[in-house]
């Protein structure tokens, strides 16, 4: 449900509450109306042309670290 993809904010138009995001070389204008704060370089989840939420890089890192801890286990 609810296809949303992470894309990097490349530029912001605060007046229009919009941003250009980049997803592996694809640039698309989206609305940032649902976000209180957003900065260039942030990754946001894009759904139907709107940024739903910013991705928290520290939390993402933590989740990935959990996967890495599994390295000790042999499949």
């Amino acid at each position: 449900m609810c296809l949303a993809v992470p894309a990097r904010v490349e530029s912001l138009d605060a007046a229009a509450s919009s941003a250009i995001v980049n997803l592996d070389g694809i640039r698309k204008a989206i609305s940032t109306q649902l976000l209180d704060e957003v900065a260039i370089g942030d990754y946001v989840l894009v759904h139907v042309g709107y940024a739903l939420e910013r991705i928290d890089p520290d939390e993402a890192e933590k989740t990935l670290l959990l996967f890495d801890e599994l390295k000790a286990i042999e499949p």
Partner: peptide, 23 residues
């Protein structure tokens, strides 16, 4: 694709699978 590819790593998947199997 950042925040996508890291979460599609087949090798890590097999490790988690092994852990699930164990638990």
């Amino acid at each position: 694709m950042k925040y996508v590819d890291e979460f599609r790593d087949g090798e890590k998947a097999r490790r988690i699978a092994a852990l699930i199997e164990q638990e």
